[in-house]
Design a protein around this nucleic acid. Structure first.
Lengths: 189, 189
DNA sequence: TGACAAGGTATACGATCGTTCACTATACTA
DNA sequence: TAGTATAGTGAACGATCGTATACCTTGTCA
């Protein structure tokens, strides 16, 4: 009941990719008057659930558009099974730094399996980023894409798989880096 | 130049979590008249970059709010290094099915490392989902959280780690399932 | 019992919304 | 060179926006 307004707002936001107008909220909440909505919204703003632009428009608060991190699991020391609210983040904010330069690739081989990148995963690549030693990159080798560790000692560059069954690559001439892997996501059906 | 309007819209959308009004777009695009904006928007709607609600409001098209999947990497057979556009998805849509019941936990141990879940990863949990045989779950054991495979043979339930260094768990009495792991995300700095 | 706060309705308000029409300037084409 | 799209300006339009005011219930508490 207390969460009801909040929940309805959340559902609307994710269904429509925008915040509802006051009239729409009246319908959502079951009010006949926009004034009732106005009072509810004021309370929600105070609670931080929604915010107002500098232009006065309604935008979702962090807890509406993000997901809560509620603790840590799997620590070798027994982590207290208490749900503290550590942070609220958006998957996009967390994984993507440069929207225009980022895209994704399906992963089908097991050449990076020792790095925890499995077949069926999706990797996020950022184009135009210069790789650092130890980064995972997708490079174009012999007209095909390969995902490897990018290692650089002095001027020597090599591409190292995270699976001993695959060979290293010492690029002879130019090396076309398609992108630097900035994230991995995996979905369990 | 051709992408300019699109890019500016994308930046605005991600910065403000809403679409700009026509007046704001006039400012964004450098127009003095809203009519110029109107013509541009009509074109963008035809191109599918933005859409209009049934209420006439502007919402981002798939390519604005989502990320493109541009192929497959790491196939054992050489996958052609051509960027086809396979799909456009949102990380939220891809990973989250039930917004209200989903939350995240940091991963700190290596007990699931053979399943490709590493320390530093973030797992997405869905609360209230009944686990199937083979699912990864977070359960409450001795006042601490553990992440394990959930295996069920007949009526026998056991929790199996994906790391031989850790023991199995055969819950004696009741087993408190905090949530079923529905996704994993990892960020490379 | 009376006072008062909380929560809702109804209505009116100026501001802004997106659309439209008439017009101008530029550039391309026959 | 004349003709015609293309792209933009400027002003006006009704509709909807979010806000504000006045009023009407309730339930609570002294």
């Amino acid at each position: 009941m207390k969460d009801s307004h909040r929940t309805k707002l959340s559902r609307f936001y994710w269904a429509h990719n925008r915040m509802p107008s006051f009239s729409e909220m009246a319908g959502l909440f079951g009010f006949a008057s926009k004034n009732a909505v106005s009072k509810v919204v004021n309370r929600l703003v105070e609670e931080g659930i929604v915010q107002k632009d500098k232009t006065g428009r309604l935008i979702p608060g962090a807890s509406l558009k993000g997901l809560a991190i509620r603790g840590t699991v799997g620590a070798s020391f027994p982590s207290p099974a208490e749900e503290e609210l550590v942070d609220v983040i958006t998957l996009d904010e967390y994984l993507i730094h440069n929207h225009e330069a980022t895209f994704m690739l399906n992963v089908s081989g097991d050449s990076m399996i020792d790095a925890g990148i499995h077949p069926g995963d999706i990797v996020l690549l950022e184009r135009g980023k210069t790789p650092k030693h130890g980064d995972i990159v997708v490079a174009q080798v012999d007209h095909a894409w390969t995902m490897k560790y990018y290692e650089k000692k002095g001027k020597q560059v090599r591409l190292v798989p995270a699976n001993k069954a695959y060979p290293m690559i010492f690029p002879k001439e130019e090396l076309t880096i398609t992108g630097v892997v900035v994230g991995v996501v995996r979905r369990y059906v």
